[in-house]
Amino acid sequence: MLSRIAASLLFLLLTITTALAGVDDIKAIQAKGVLVVGVKADYRPWGFIDPSGAFVGMEIDMANEIAKRLGVRLEMVPVTTANRIEFLRQGRIDLILATMSDTPARRQAATVIDPPYYAGGTNILARKSMNFHRWQDLRGRRVCGLQGAYYNRPVAENWGAIIVAFPGVPEAYIDLLAGNCDAFVQDSSLIASTLVSDSAKWADFEMPMETFGEQAWVMAVSAANRDGTFATFLSRLSVEWHRTGHLIELEKNWGIPPSPFLKTMHEKS
């Protein structure tokens, strides 16, 4: 109840600030007739492509929904962890919907949309035979990671792992399967979905650590449009998606193991 009041207060506040600032970037998008969204194309099942070259995945479904509500055509640009904020800054994309976790640095560089639509923590994928139990076990070990991922640094600095960063998930999996890396540090939700997606191949693997630093996944629009109508609209939409259970439904459709975050958000609203 309290959170509902807080949420409505937040909206009131947002509406007021929007009215005051009066940046109508939704109008601009509708005038263009197209919404350009930066999505992942190498992050199954959130964002990937099918053999026809079309983007598919949970985040792509969300992008489609946003474009439909605005009544514009959807155009998607594949982005990477390293270039998505730059694309937003350049104006090449209107919106980031690309497995982006919420960090203070990103809040400075872009307008992050609250509430988050997803959350995942950090964990590792490793062979059961490695007998990893605590993060301290990674000291001096070669650990595969993704270039630009925010959790590489804590894993290296706090626990002394040697991070070998790859541009994409498949390259890292190859190294892990070949035994060149002792573990693959990744978002816990991706690891969970990998373990269930192909149980035969990953039968000898596990997610052994205690998940740390649960990070929210957020949409983001340009830093210049902090008080714009688009940010407000997205924020309301995110609340609606949590309330109606739409996100839980999408998660289920894409075979992602249920995340505690979505459940909590749904129950709270």
Binding site: R44, T80, G168, P170, E171, D198
Partner: peptide
């Protein structure tokens, strides 16, 4: 970020998620 043959090969590999394809 240009979708040429190399990029698309990487995307295809991610979509298939089968390391023996690499």
């Amino acid at each position: 970020g240009v979708e040429e043959a190399m990029t698309l090969t990487r995307f295809a590999l991610s979509a298939e998620n089968r390391s023996e394809l690499l």
